[in-house]
Amino acid sequence: MELLQIIILAAVQGLTEFLPISSSAHLILAPRVAGYADQGLAFDVAVHVGTLAAVIGYFRHQVISITRDFFRSWINPSARSRESRLGWMIVIATIPVGLFGLLMKSLVETDLRSPLVIAITTIGFGVLLLLADQFGKRHRDEYSLRWSDALVIGLFQAVAIIPGTSRSGSTMTAGLFLGLTREAASRFSFLISIPTILMSGGLLGLDLLQSEAEVDWLSISLGAGLAFITAYLCIHYFLRFIENIGMTPFVIYRFILGGLILLFML
């Protein structure tokens, strides 16, 4: 792979994985727009590993607390804490995407990767994000989530396996509709991305092990590193400014992107 191609694709994955604008859509569209050949399965695995490392690294203290208290509550139910409860909410929110992913994997990899599908979901879920941001009460934090709330967010996340929907965008939309603040909806979205990216990366890794394609270790190592850096910075600045800037800039971007896809790629 060319150096510029590695930089572009790694930056695209690192930025769009956590912004509410759909990483899958951008990874499908970027090679077409730039005129590059498909980056290959190994590179997709690498950039997923990079973004996974970024979100774990950024929330490392909370991840350790949640994991410790979650398993401690199994041994001693009386030792339940708000961190262990949040751990259960993350588990509940992850179940739907695991089931949907297994059932719809082949469909997502074929028919649902078309520009028309991406344009429709980009615009349609942009409208939902705008409505949630404008009309959500925004008075709750992620620790107030009930199991029913987590399940709703999980169902929204499951729908996001359709390219153009945006995993981050759909889960933030659900969180805002449920009354979470922008920052809380974003934090919970980032936390549930850990098991989700782990599962999707694991499936990609299994496909890679079963393929006979040669692996360009230099390219995928560089891609993983760049994806880590861009994703880490994205999470940091998104959480820092989201309460002030709101979701409107990302909605406008989605409308423009969807419109351009309809205009030039159909």
Rank of each mutant, 00 (worst) to 15 (best):
V215Y: 03
E212W: 02
W88Q: 13
L218E: 12
L178N: 00
L209Q: 01
A42R: 02
L112Q: 07
W147M: 15
S148E: 14
I123S: 05
A160N: 05
M172P: 11
I120S: 05
S106L: 07
S211A: 10
V33C: 03
I118T: 10
F156V: 08
L198H: 02
L260R: 02
V108A: 14
M104W: 05
E214Y: 05
A42Y: 02
F100D: 00
V47N: 06
N244P: 05
R254K: 06
L99A: 15
L130S: 05
F43W: 05
F18V: 09
W74I: 15
M89T: 04
H236N: 10
S189C: 09
L116I: 12
R182N: 02
N244M: 11
D207N: 13
V47D: 09
L262G: 06
L206M: 12
A224K: 04
L260F: 09
A30P: 12
L257E: 02
I123V: 15
A160G: 10
F59L: 11
L209H: 00
G175I: 06
T121D: 07
N76T: 13
F190T: 00
I252Y: 02
S219N: 13
L129E: 00
P20S: 02
D133K: 09
L29M: 14
A79I: 06
R60G: 11
L155V: 14
I153F: 08
V55A: 09
Q210W: 04
F250G: 03
A53G: 14
Q134F: 08
I28C: 07
Q39G: 11
I161H: 07
A132E: 01
V251R: 06
Y143S: 13
V45H: 06
L9W: 02
L226K: 04
T110V: 04
L180M: 10
L99F: 13
V127P: 00
V152K: 12
V97C: 13
L116G: 07
P163A: 04
I161A: 07
G57E: 10
L206I: 15
A53R: 01
V251N: 09
A93R: 04
D111Q: 14
S144W: 01
S221V: 11
D44N: 15
T171Y: 01
Y253D: 03
S219V: 09
L9T: 08
L266R: 11
Y143G: 14
F125R: 02
N244K: 13
F238P: 05
V55Q: 08
I153V: 15
L218A: 14
L29G: 09
F241D: 08
S81N: 10
H139G: 11
T110M: 04
P249A: 04
I220C: 10
V152A: 15
D38C: 06
F255V: 14
F71E: 12
G202N: 01
F135H: 11
H236K: 14
L27W: 05
F188N: 05
K105D: 13
I56P: 14
F18M: 08
L191I: 04
R32F: 08
S114V: 01
L233A: 14
Q210V: 02
L3V: 13
L266H: 00
M104N: 00
I256Q: 03
G169Y: 00
L29N: 06
V97T: 15
T67A: 15
Q5P: 11
L178W: 03
A150L: 06
G124N: 04
S22M: 10
A54C: 11
A42C: 07
V55T: 12
I90D: 09
I28T: 08
L151W: 05
A231V: 04
L226H: 00
I242D: 01
S23C: 11
H26V: 05
I162E: 09
